[in-house]
Amino acid sequence: MTALLNNRYAIVAALAVVIAILPFTFPSSYYLRVASLVWVSAFASIGLNVLMGKAGQVSLGHAAFFGIGAYSTAIGPAHLGLPSWASLVIGACVSGLLAYLVGRPILRLKGHYLAIATLGFGVLVALVITTESRWTGGPDGMPVAKLTVFGWRIGTAYAWYWLSGAFLLLGAWIALNLDDTPTGRALLALHDSEVAARVVGIDVAGLKLRAFVIAAVYASIAGSLLAMMNGFVNPDLAGFQHSVELVTMVVLGGLGSIVGSIVGAAVLVVLPQALTVFQEYENLMLGFIIIVAMVFMRDGIVPMASKLIASAR
């Protein structure tokens, strides 16, 4: 089992099997919607995990890139006459470029200073989206055109389930393979000790920047997918609360664990749906579960589980 968690072929194969089998257990297409939300959120949190788990840099403004991706697929077709898929690509490029530009000065900061700087950046992006209502529809948001691929209009819950699932598989595969590239190995060194990494000649600043750009592109694509799936965007997607949610997914699932990001996303998406049975005690329970989970599984769910399994042998 632990070996399984460390073998990237096994992880992707297992994920593919789960994605393929799950729909047959669903009683209604509402479950497809929830599962698609999990795949999309997991996609974003895998990207953020590259930054947080591997490069060891926190971002409290990551929803900004999610929002840029979401709004690009809204604005592209509506105002610029671009096809949706092209808008997704443009959104990802814009996010990557923006991450590259702001990343240089921001990533010089450390620890909590980095946290407040990314938070400030996120607040600014959300503010621009909320204010420039001529383009973005303002605080109430705007509708998003349906995705059309080769004349085939993707609108049903099933279509979106498979599409988001396919994106997640691809995203997980790329992130898992990152470990084997020079960048991935350098990131590992950086995570263990920044000073040591610098001493052995790793370009630390450039490396952090690369992780930041990767994370931004992941978030942007996830945002585009969600926007097209919902057929609607609003500024909440770029807001502080959403940034916090993304960070919570990564940490709850397990820093540095790709599987953890998926589990973390699943927990945070499904939990509010499950907690509706508690009615007005819903938020109380949500907070309680987050505290308990973090106190007893401080490294995150997946690393803790694999440790448990290893020690049970």
């Binding site: 009683p27 209604s28 297409s29 509402y30 479950y31 919607r33 929830v34 939300l37 819950a157 749906q273």
Partner: peptide, 9 residues
């Protein structure tokens, strides 16, 4: 999401 839940579920 809740709207989908009301309609579908």
């Amino acid at each position: 999401t809740f709207a989908t839940r009301l309609v579908e579920d």
